[in-house]
Each structure stands twice: as C-alpha cells, then as structure tokens.
C-alpha cells in the first residue's frame, strides 16, 4: 500500500505546505530580521475568513461559497492585507528595537489574533467542506493519490516559479534581494525601506492565505489552533535552510516534509506516536552539524 511513489507524493505535498509557510517567514526575516510568530495566526485567520462568524458547531460558508476564480484572489488579498496592516500598526514602530523585542511583539500579536478568533468562532473545531471534489483519488504511477495532493505539488511549484520571476525580474524583487543581502547598504543606495518591507509583508500574507486554502481543503476542518504547528515546522525550516536564504527555506521545507513522512512510514509501530520527537531531534542534530544552516548565503556568516 505504501509504495515508493505513494511516499513520494505524500512527502512532496506535505513538504510543499511547509515550504510555502517557510518562504513566508524567511521573506520577512530577510528584510527586517523579524521572526514573525504571528504567521501561524495569519494562516488560521484566512481559514476562518471562509466561514460565517458564530459559535455554532456547524460551519456556514461565507466567502467559501464564492467560485474559485473569485475566492482565491480575495483570500490572497485578505492574507496580504492582514500582514500589511500588522506591519503598519505594530512592526513599523519597532524597527529600531532588538530582534528579541520584535519577536515577542509578534508572539503577542499571534496571541491576540488567536483569542479574537476564539471569541468570534468558539473553541470547537468545525467541519468545512471546501472543494470536496478535490479529495477524490486518482491512479498515478501505481499509487492512489488524491487530486488535491497533485494540485498542492503543482501550486507550490507554480508559486515558487512566480516568486522567482518576481524576485529576479522586477524592481521590487531586486530591491528585496538587495535588502535581504544588506539592508543598511540597500537603503543608502536608494532602496525605500517602507516599500520593500510592505511588499515583503504582502507576499508573506498571501502565502499564508495559500497555505490556509490548501490546509482547509485537505483536512476539512477549521480549528483556531491549526496554524500553530505548521508555523512551528516552517519556522524551523527557515533556520535549517539558513536564515534569510529563500531557496534554503524552500528546500528545508521539502526536506522536513520528507523526513516527517519517512519517519511515519518506517518507524516501528510503538515509536510512531513519538514521531515529532524524532523529527525535532534530527533538527537539533542538523543545527549542530551546520549551525549556519544547510544552505546558508555567503552574507549569513557572522562578521567581526
């Protein structure tokens, strides 16, 4: 049943989710050294934007009723808008603070968002059926793969290509790469800080929305705690990938997805509940071997 191709599709689709989330975190870290703990709550917020606020057990679709062609752009805008708003209200005022202070502020923002959702929607997980057709399995390379998994892999690759083109071939992309390399120098050479940072937050928020859509279709559940675990893994992926390195974040996201699926498949049955403990031990081991990250950029080396 768990044939090799099945494992591959599982790993690629889970890794894709982690990669997209890690990219959202790495983009913001690159331009302003902020480890954004609120990213998980951006994801959760987007999931709940799909349904009508109420504390009932059953979910009533709100935005979710719109056809995909309308829904997807609107969701991306909601995610981007939320991230840009949080930057304008909070992080802009903390630019001169230490990274620790900014990190705690983002932690606090996540806390506020989570409890705001809890107050509006109640704590119980709700069943949401968004695009149920996508969970029908198709036969491919001897594996039975839900259509959604293929779509996730496709969408991840598409988003990565778009982002790559954006970063390589637009002025904003050029400025972002320059800012990620050396923010002070970039500003001296005429890169506008506000423009780059707002841009990074907008893209990061849109990525969170994409992750939200994928998650909710895959699990069929809306839960106020669903963003946290994804954010945690993504956050670890950005570090393993080398902080500030965008390709590194993506690669590490896929790597963690693969490691997670492999452990699930090959660990002895008794040890399976402890899968995450093994995964995080691998992470610590990985950091010990390469503290600067697997794919560290040249500028990431500490300079004296």
């Amino acid at each position: 049943m768990t044939s090799l191709s099945q494992l591959f599709f599982d790993a690629a689709s889970l890794g894709g989710i982690y990669a997209l989330a890690a990219l959202g975190i790495a983009l913001i870290f690159g331009v302003m050294n902020l480890v954004n703990f609120a990213h998980g709550e951006y994801i959760t917020f987007c999931v709940f934007a799909l349904i009508v606020p109420s504390t009932d057990a059953a979910a009533h679709l709100f935005l979710g009723k719109a056809p995909a062609i309308v829904l997807v752009p609107v969701m991306l805008m909601i995610g981007g808008g939320l991230a840009v708003l949080s930057e304008a209200l909070i992080f802009r005022r903390l630019r001169n603070a230490t990274p620790v202070t900014m990190m705690i502020a983002s932690f606090a923002l996540g806390f506020v968002l989570q409890y705001a959702l809890l107050a509006a929607y109640g704590g119980r997980p709700k069943a949401v059926s968004l695009w149920p057709g996508l969970n029908t399995p198709v036969e491919l390379l001897g594996a039975s793969v839900p259509l959604l998994q293929l779509l996730v892999i496709g969408v991840t690759v598409a988003i990565l290509v778009i982002l790559f083109l954006l970063l390589r071939h637009t002025r904003l992309g050029l400025e972002m790469r320059a800012a990620a390399e050396n923010f002070t120098m970039a500003r001296m050479l005429g890169v506008k800080a506000n423009r780059v940072i707002t841009g990074a937050f907008a893209i990061s928020g849109a990525l969170a929305a994409a992750v939200a859509l994928i998650l909710v279709t895959q699990t069929g559940v809306a839960d106020v705690r669903m963003g946290g675990p994804v954010m945690l893994v993504a956050f670890i992926a950005t570090v393993i990938g080398g902080m500030g390195s965008l390709p590194g974040a993506v690669a590490a996201g896929f790597l963690l997805g693969a490691a997670s699926v492999m452990l699930q498949a090959f660990l002895p049955l008794d040890a399976r509940p402890f899968r995450d403990a093994f995964l995080y031990s691998l992470v610590i081991g990985c950091l010990l071997l390469r503290p600067q990250g697997l794919f560290a950029s040249a500028s990431a080396k500490p300079r004296v």
């Binding site: 670890i236 570090v239 992470v283």
Partner: peptide, 28 residues
Amino acid sequence: AAILRLSGIAASIATFAFLAIVNTVYSN
C-alpha cells in the same frame, strides 16, 4: 551541552525543538 554550542538565533530555535520534544514525549 548540545544546544549551547550554537549561537544566537540557532540556539533559540534549538530550544524550541527541545520544547516540542518534551511535549511530544510527555503527551504520548
């Protein structure tokens, strides 16, 4: 002894991984 060989943000992340390990073990 392991985690503190790392510096700065990598050490912080490793402590996060430690927290997740403890939670997974004690929850299961």
